[in-house]
Design a protein around this nucleic acid. Sequence first.
DNA 1: GTAGAAAAAGACAACGCTGTCAACAAGCGT
DNA 2: ACGCTTGTTGACAGCGTTGTCTTTTTCTAC
Lengths: 365, 365
Amino acid sequence: MTRPVRPTAHPPRVATPETAGARRRKSVHTINDVAARAGVSIKTVSRVVNREPNVRDDTAQRVHRAIRDLKYRPNFSARNLASSRAYLVAVLYDNPSDSYIVRVLEGVQAACEAADYGVLLQPFDASSPRICDQVHDMLAQRRPSGLVLTPPLCDLEPLLATLDADGTQYVSIAPLHEDRGKPFVSVDDVRASCDLTEYLLGRGHRRIGFIKADPRHGAASRRLAGYLEAHRQHGLAVDERLIANGLLSFESGVECARRLLRQADRPTAIFASNDDMAAGVLHAAQELGLAVPADLSVAGYDDAPIARYVYPGLTTVRQPIRAMATGAVQCLLQSMRPQHGARGGDTVHRFDYEIIIRDSVASPR
Amino acid sequence: MTRPVRPTAHPPRVATPETAGARRRKSVHTINDVAARAGVSIKTVSRVVNREPNVRDDTAQRVHRAIRDLKYRPNFSARNLASSRAYLVAVLYDNPSDSYIVRVLEGVQAACEAADYGVLLQPFDASSPRICDQVHDMLAQRRPSGLVLTPPLCDLEPLLATLDADGTQYVSIAPLHEDRGKPFVSVDDVRASCDLTEYLLGRGHRRIGFIKADPRHGAASRRLAGYLEAHRQHGLAVDERLIANGLLSFESGVECARRLLRQADRPTAIFASNDDMAAGVLHAAQELGLAVPADLSVAGYDDAPIARYVYPGLTTVRQPIRAMATGAVQCLLQSMRPQHGARGGDTVHRFDYEIIIRDSVASPR
DNA sequence: GTAGAAAAAGACAACGCTGTCAACAAGCGT
DNA sequence: ACGCTTGTTGACAGCGTTGTCTTTTTCTAC
């Protein structure tokens, strides 16, 4: 008999299930322990854990009991390694603001927990020329199933191109060019900004200062567009000198506000592209002895916690960031296992914004 | 010949290195690709990657070249699985505040990147009765090499006991009972709080309100102790009615301040146990028409971003949170590979705090 | 030049899981 | 009773590393 005979006992993997079990009470168990306890093969345990079909009810019950008894949790790394799915979602960010990223993280974590996925938070420097390589390294090392991109990273064309070329799944929390065909979640920045500007116009303001966001953020131009659009709709010209270039930081808000407010014909209201800068405007107004909202109205964007904390509370645009992040992950997971919903699902998700009226806006005297 | 002969070609692992290579340019490579390109075994590549000894210089060079050419990065999951070290540090938190956790994360990430470790951010509900089980599950699933515990989780005695029993390595960012013998990083809360209180006393305040932190935080009692100590040193009695119970949130600061300021003999200064609550005090003062610092002085703790953003800027205590987090991780890594520094290294790291003087404190009229 | 030791390199199992495929059991039509 | 399909279970390779052990090469001392 020259045909290759299977080795009868598979010698290397002796593994001594009882020896190992007897050695010491392990605080953490593997699929083998569960299988042994339930009297089934590890594959069956795997089936139960992954809710695969074709397991008899009573078998599944036995397995579930064993899992509960042993407090078994499948090892994440082993799953990653063995399967093409990675059970891991990576959030890429370049710290727009503490509260923004924490909200995103909350939303992502909620969605991932429900789906038994892990979350990886990865900071990147959007202005680094090496960012594509850095992201590549991260992908090679961690092999996440998908990425959640936050601004300003999702506005980096070269990065998106790299990911597309790679075939890496991603969802952006911010609009993407529709023709890219990649999913994103967002609110309609232009309309929100337009609405808030209209609100200011409606209160009688005619000279409204605008503080732009960091131009690396795609939102910068969209929010400006909304501001301009509102003026256009009212048939009002916009004084160029009322538009300042901010960087999204509190400090840049202070500076821009000083510049705007020192002008001869100063604005009666200032609309900043985010709340940090709006807080800076408030700060500058106090310095200059201007009462808000009596002498100056101020509006922000984001409804960050700071919008409530400052005095007076900021009128601002609320984006449901947490919900958007959750939606982004669901979108991602759905596109990864098209089993359920048949086709890939909607690729664009618009969320509703909300104008939050607080006490920082009044009619000009 | 009946003695067991090694199979000549190890049939199952055919793997066809050239076939696979020719199939398509893979965007991501494994240790096998590197080994093939450098003309060495995978074990040698592993040695080079892990800086193990006994590799000839020219061999190492060849391997390094191959790694660079292929942009090879070792797969994280495979490493976890194969080795006892997990190359992973988990940060456990129960959101004390957005800025706090982001600062910690920055510090942890900086230290981990330097050591080629990954970071896992895990939220937990400190008041959940199931928290020990939840942490256990997380440990079983992810098997991190060590944990970084932030308040209030590090003040949870049962959790610490579980970890100790498990033999899980951890470092706390906050003082631990010294006799536990576990490492921690911290500032001297009591002294810092005492110093700031002294500063207020030095400015002439005699009725200083104090807003306590959430009692689940160990820092709550320490900061109160410092406040009391300063009074003791000045031979001053403390009016119980000047002490309010806050929850660390902005809203609780507003409420406590209202209560304190509506008293007949109201305080001339309020010291809140964190900046969020101090911002709440500012808010309440504005509501009540009290000018800060003319009518009321306010001090906070943490030097969170909000301390700069409010008007007037908050006088507060700065903890070097980022540096502490970095220190915590270094401490953890050191205790895990005692190779270098011989013994386990210092188990306690005190960091210096700093009193940041801004504009929210003045002498009472 | 050669034995012996040390250094360098390699072979291969193992980590804990999933995917593939084979084996077996049960149900069904004829 | 027979073969068929369908449902259920298990055996085992393989994922990309590291750890252990073996083999080969190089160096050292005579």
